[in-house]
């Protein structure tokens, strides 16, 4: 008798099924690549889905211009190694207005550089399906979102008008201008993602590993000084600490944690032994209760 499939094998099979379905049913799909560990897993699954061919769609990164420099280097390397076209989109209007997370607050900044940037890019390239690496265990409003999540022509998500999703029969029908966001790793948890990275030896951005980095303590969080756009407030000093990141985003909005974990097993060990959930490192959730739900309705991933 054959061995039973493990939970990771089952999750992998489901994700590959989802990715193939999108390619079979949509004319112009794209994979939104955020460079983090979830994107790394999603990209790896896409490569597995179409092996020996490369995935038949481009990667797209909506660059807020405030990403960690190491993320950008990693992004370019991975796209080249996988043989995929990489589209980098920046909201030039936001750049002209000098929108900054330091001066405009995380809410407005996210709205303009991420949500607006994403909508611009989807409109410009007329993508009808966009893969995203969101997981349902990350945040409460995501727990109810479908794997194939319908978006209106102006990119809005309506939680009350979701299509029922049964078995693995996904309704992929849309009208011109509408689109579907697809979340192939919806059913993965943070621990699943790390275990899979470990098992499959998937490359991740070095920022996930502990190293001595320049940080500033601000509002109870450790913010890394990644370039000279970060101005110190009175009383703040740059300290050198052994830190790593549990989640990666824009450097001014992503808090580091003090850590000595320099290997993947150590990262997983640390994650299992600490009891702080992942999105705490991202300031977006702190703005107001239900903030993610509001952002999603407006078109944020």
């Amino acid at each position: 008798m054959s061995l039973n499939l493990t939970h990771l094998q089952q999750l992998e099979a489901e994700s590959i099924n989802i990715i193939r379905e999108v390619v079979a049913e949509f004319g112009n799909p794209v994979m939104l690549y955020s460079i983090g560990k979830d994107s790394a897993v999603m990209l790896h699954l896409a490569r597995k889905a179409f092996y020996p061919a490369p995935p038949p769609f481009p990667l797209m990164h909506v660059d807020t211009t405030w990403k960690f420099r190491e993320m950008i280097q990693f992004r370019d390397r991975m796209a080249a190694e996988c043989g995929l076209d990489l589209i980098v989109h920046v909201n030039e209007e936001g750049v002209r207005q000098k929108i900054s997370p330091f001066t405009h607050g995380s809410s407005l900044y996210t709205d303009i550089m991420k949500t607006e940037g994403l909508k611009q890019a989807l409109d410009r390239y007329k993508f009808d399906a966009a893969f995203g690496g969101a997981r349902r265990d990350e945040e409460k409003s995501r727990a109810k979102e479908r794997i194939f999540s319908f978006r209106s022509a102006n990119h809005r998500w309506d939680p009350k008008l979701q299509r029922p999703e049964l078995w693995n029969l996904y309704n992929t029908r849309i009208k011109p201008g509408e689109s579907i966001r697809v979340f192939p790793i919806s059913n993965w948890t943070e621990l699943d993602v790390w275990q899979y990275i470990h098992l499959e030896n998937i490359p991740i951005v070095p920022l996930y590993y502990a190293a001595v980095r320049p940080v500033v303590e601000r509002d109870g969080m450790l913010i890394m000084v990644d370039d000279d756009r970060m101005e110190l407030k009175p009383g703040e000093t740059v300290q050198y600490k052994s830190v790593r990141f549990r989640t990666l985003g824009c450097y001014p909005l992503t808090a580091a944690v003090e850590s000595t974990a320099t290997t993947l097993p150590e990262i997983i060990q640390e994650m299992l032994l600490t009891r702080t959930s992942e999105r705490q490192g991202r300031m977006i959730d702190h703005d107001s209760a239900g903030s993610m739900e509001k952002k999603k309705q407006e078109g944020y991933f």
Partner: peptide
């Protein structure tokens, strides 16, 4: 209770998926 609208009504109105191990 995931969605804010439901939270205010005090009822769950759709399918939600939760994970534990």
């Amino acid at each position: 209770d995931g969605l804010q609208a439901e939270r205010e009504q005090g009822i769950t109105i759709d399918v939600a998926y939760r994970y534990f191990s």
